[in-house]
Design a protein around this nucleic acid. Sequence first.
DNA 1: TGCAATGTACAACGATCGTTTTACATTGGT
DNA 2: ACCAATGTAAAACGATCGTTGTACATTGCA
Lengths: 174, 174
Amino acid sequence: MDMTTKLIVAAERLFDRHGYMATGMDRLTEAAGMSSRTLYKHAGNKAQLMARVLMERNRRFMARFEVQTVDALFAALEDWVRVEGTRGCLFLRSRAETGGDTPEIAEAVAAHKAAFHRRIEQVVEANLGHEDPILAEQVLVLLEGATHAAVYRGADAVSAARAAASILIAKART
Amino acid sequence: MDMTTKLIVAAERLFDRHGYMATGMDRLTEAAGMSSRTLYKHAGNKAQLMARVLMERNRRFMARFEVQTVDALFAALEDWVRVEGTRGCLFLRSRAETGGDTPEIAEAVAAHKAAFHRRIEQVVEANLGHEDPILAEQVLVLLEGATHAAVYRGADAVSAARAAASILIAKART
DNA sequence: TGCAATGTACAACGATCGTTTTACATTGGT
DNA sequence: ACCAATGTAAAACGATCGTTGTACATTGCA
């Protein structure tokens, strides 16, 4: 595993578990197993590192959500939280922690959420045979809600959301 | 307005807008218009201050959600985001920023989310005439999702959630 | 009149922050 | 054989962190 990858993997883990601001560079160098010199050569600075982490996470997340049906979106989320845990959305969290004042982070978040929204619209259209922006927005709200409710309600939140979505889809088909 | 209130109001505003960790005590004393000595006499320390802020916010939040119908829950959320803005859930954010490692904060968050869940269960039961834990979970997911989706989708997310809830309720009544 | 409480201003504490510097070791390719 | 690249270890940078100490002003009640 090359140094940049090792760094991003370690950084994502620490940022996710302890928060962005609460994670110092010392802890990061130790977890990534490299000197601070090397870390800065690869990452530039802390904000750029956070942005890289988010872009990489976006890639991994969107890959898991390359599905054909709305129900499969929720199945993908069930898998995601089983593998990644339930600590909320790292994109919204990073934006909140920085107050939206760090451009590279704000842009990475915006890019991810735009892609997420687009993907949902596509899947909804494929399922219904036509566009339905309102239903797409509802599915987005259910996915976002399941992600955050799962933090304190556990995996039940995701299955409840899944069942709700299936009712909304059935109703939209009539 | 007494000193403690002034402090908590200023702290909530800064924590919400810039994040908990990113808000230094200097900025806090300046915003609250008091010396650091006075701040510490009233707040104890930063973590206790955050916990007090959360307890106060819980009070204000729950007061707004003293309603009789599920639809009114979403109307209350529409009001809430209009007044308070769309920066996500300060409770989950504070837990994420501290990694859940600060007991007073973790407890304040747990207390709020438990009260929130209980309130939803009560309203659902009042609306249906009987308990329905799954529907309550779905309403919770929709409210949580609307709160977080509104960060990047705006108020449309809340009205979409509201419409979705009304469909789920209608279906549960049959 | 006087004491206790409550406030201010401001310097200082040690710790830690993100980042850079210095000096040196290892390696792969021409 | 040698240069360039890539890594390490460790100290140091100035800034800022949360918190406390010192010294003094104001006020309300006994």
